[in-house]
Amino acid sequence: MTYRVRIENADGEVVTIEISADELREKGLTLEELLPPNARIVEVEEVEP
């Protein structure tokens, strides 16, 4: 499974990243732990691999 994640950074700019569930598991991280300081998740969407 892959996630498309929209993130708002500290400057108010919204960027989109895609990350797979396998990648998260391998790194032992959650989506929140990948965020840079002062950023927030705006939207998470599951996409087909």
Rank of each mutant, 00 (worst) to 15 (best):
M1Q: 05
M1L: 14
T2A: 09
T2L: 15
T2N: 11
T2E: 03
Y3D: 00
R4S: 02
R4I: 09
R4C: 03
R4V: 07
V5K: 00
V5F: 05
V5Y: 05
R6T: 15
R6E: 03
I7A: 03
I7S: 01
E8K: 08
E8D: 02
N9S: 10
N9G: 09
N9E: 05
A10Y: 10
A10I: 10
A10K: 08
D11I: 07
E13L: 12
E13Y: 11
E13N: 11
E13C: 12
V14P: 03
V14Y: 13
V15S: 12
V15L: 12
V15P: 00
V15E: 10
V15F: 15
T16Y: 10
T16C: 10
T16E: 07
I17R: 02
I17Q: 02
E18T: 12
E18P: 01
E18V: 14
I19R: 00
I19S: 00
S20H: 08
S20R: 10
S20Y: 06
S20Q: 07
S20T: 11
S20N: 08
A21D: 07
A21R: 08
A21L: 08
D22N: 12
D22R: 12
E23K: 05
L24K: 01
L24F: 04
L24V: 05
R25F: 10
R25E: 08
R25W: 09
R25C: 08
E26W: 12
E26Q: 13
E26H: 12
K27Y: 08
K27R: 11
G28P: 02
L29G: 05
L29Y: 06
T30M: 06
T30Q: 06
L31R: 01
L31H: 00
E32N: 09
E33Q: 14
L34Y: 14
L34R: 03
L34V: 10
L35D: 00
L35F: 06
P36D: 05
P36G: 12
P37D: 08
N38C: 08
N38P: 04
A39N: 05
A39L: 07
A39H: 12
R40D: 02
I41L: 07
I41V: 09
V42C: 06
E43F: 15
E43Q: 12
E43V: 07
V44P: 01
V44A: 02
V44W: 10
E45Y: 12
E45D: 06
E46I: 15
V47P: 03
V47T: 05
V47Q: 05
E48Q: 14
E48G: 14
E48V: 14
E48K: 13
P49Y: 14
P49M: 13
